[in-house]
Amino acid sequence: MNHAVSRALRVVQEGPLALVVDGGRFGVRHLGVTQGGAADWISFYWANWLLGNAADAAALEIVIGGGLTLEAEQDATLALAGADLGARLDDSPLAPGATFRIAAGQRLTFSQPRQGLRAYLAVPGGFDVPEVLGSRSATAREQLGGHLGDGSALRNGNRLEWSGQQAPERRLPFDPAKGITLVGRQLALVPGSQIGHFTGVSLYRAFNAPWRIDDRADRMGVRLRGPELHCRLGSMISEGIPLGAVQVPPDGQPIVLLNDRQTIGGYPRLGALTPLSTACLAQCLPGEEVRLVATSSEQALARHRSCLNELHRNG
């Protein structure tokens, strides 16, 4: 790393949660290490696309906003995508979906969610943070990754450095407010092998009733509130948990498992949300309503590919 050309943001005021993420930590799940990484991976990819970065360059995932204030130490070009958290550059509103210039001493603040829950702030070339087990993503529970290497979120006084210089000026090739993860509230679920153990009534309800996002929602999982679902299997022998798995504990209220989920678990599952729908869920605020829609693996893959193609077509 060349310190002579590095730039930095300083945390003037920490928010409820802002952490360094990349595409996730892979190839280590068998050691009990979780996936981590950007929960809305699509908005994260687009944030990097804006600056011409590698798709999984380390960026900042800002959850809620809640007063997070960052100050630039040098002039720079940055990019913001994903949720609209009422960002301001000094006193001017800053809409997500484009690159923007920030001058030395200027402050970037995030107030409250106006649309979505997670915003992604990218810097040219990605943040210079050490790789831990093949990823820069912070996972607090595991004390791994992030800007300090120990899984911590941003705290007052922390500095975030990067050394990339060149950055194009770009806007998203679509209306940021209509971003797929900000508007998608029909969540596609690929049924899993235990689905036959749920009662008929439960299955009917699962796919026909609205589900409300519970307050108990974090990077490990999101609880859904709605009709009680019953599975004839009590608990199972623990097995690997894929991203988006919809597990149903004995209280009948599903929990959708996100990026920081435990690696194995023993609650029966309806199946798993597609990665795309998992990203949509990661943008939902408590109290919002979603619906579950059954889909096939083939359909899910086709959607997934078209989503990635759009990114590449514009690359």
């Binding site: 892979f26 190839g27 280590v28 799940r29 068998h30 022998i237 623990s238 097995e239 690997g240 948990i241 894929p242 690696t263 194995i264 693996s297 083939e298 893959l301 997934h304 590919r305 990635l308």
Partner: peptide
């Protein structure tokens, strides 16, 4: 991408952009 063994199973996560189901 990942292979997660447990007591009775192995969960296999593969690159779906390179291999079909």
């Amino acid at each position: 991408i990942d292979l997660v063994p447990s007591y009775t199973t192995l969960m296999l996560h593969y690159d779906c952009l390179c291999l079909t189901h």
